[in-house]
Amino acid sequence: MSSQEASSRSAVVALARTSLSYAHAVIEEAEREHGDLRMAQAFGILLALHAADLGDALRELAGPEPLPGKKRLDNNPYTDPLDGRYGDMDAWRRTLSDDELREHCRYWNWSRENQVHPHGRWWCSKALSASQRELARRGLDPQSWRDGTESE
């Protein structure tokens, strides 16, 4: 690769990183101000369309793709009781039983620990934190999902 190609590639990677950082900020703001992720999801779709020209740089940032049929996160031993639900996730969390909420925490903790990309870890951490806040709101130990016991 020539130095000019390397320089162009570095510029595209830098632009992709800046775009992703901006996207994170907008998604956080949309979630904070609107309480649901519809606007953030729409923005994500628009960002993906805009970033189509940055495909190579984004693939470089994301790292190697998993082998076909061997997606790393498909092996989660825990079940997300809210899988497939959309809208106000805090409201959905309030509908879970204590045991379901703890399973929800275990699911997101496992997902966070097995994420390859920083954005994925950040997203899983947000879901785990929200579930821990719901445990605390109920007067339960926010860490009780770790071993299944409640603090006295």
Rank of each mutant, 00 (worst) to 15 (best):
A40L: 10
Y107V: 08
I27C: 10
I45C: 04
G120P: 03
A14N: 07
V116H: 09
H50D: 12
H24R: 14
W123S: 08
L73Y: 10
L20E: 05
G55V: 01
W92M: 07
L47N: 07
R85A: 04
F43H: 09
L73T: 09
W122G: 02
A16F: 02
N75A: 15
E31M: 13
L101P: 01
D98T: 13
D36F: 10
W108P: 00
L128R: 07
A130V: 00
Y22V: 11
Q41H: 11
A25L: 15
R102W: 04
C105G: 03
D80Y: 10
D74L: 15
Y22I: 13
H34V: 00
L128A: 08
A51W: 03
D56C: 07
D80W: 11
M89L: 15
T18L: 14
R9A: 06
N76C: 15
E103G: 04
E31F: 08
A30T: 02
E33Y: 03
R59I: 00
A127Q: 14
E100V: 06
R102C: 05
G63W: 04
E60L: 13
Y22P: 00
P66R: 14
I27V: 12
G84Q: 09
P118V: 11
R85G: 00
P68Q: 14
E28A: 14
E60M: 10
D74Y: 11
F43L: 14
Q115K: 12
R112S: 01
R59S: 02
G69R: 15
A40Q: 06
H24K: 11
A62R: 14
D36W: 13
E113N: 13
G139Y: 04
W123A: 13
L54A: 03
T95Y: 02
S7I: 07
Y107Q: 09
I27D: 04
R137N: 12
P64M: 08
R72E: 11
T95F: 03
L128I: 06
V26N: 02
R138Q: 08
L135A: 01
A23H: 09
R32N: 05
R106K: 12
R138A: 09
D36N: 15
V26F: 08
M39C: 09
H117T: 05
A52V: 02
R38P: 00
D36R: 14
E113P: 01
S125H: 06
Y86S: 11
A62K: 10
S8T: 04
Y78H: 15
L128Q: 05
K71C: 05
W108L: 06
A48M: 08
K71I: 02
R38T: 09
P64F: 03
S8E: 12
D83P: 00
E31Y: 09
E33M: 09
E103I: 04
D98R: 13
G87C: 10
D80S: 11
H104W: 06
D98N: 13
L46G: 05
P68D: 11
L82M: 12
A127Y: 06
S131V: 00
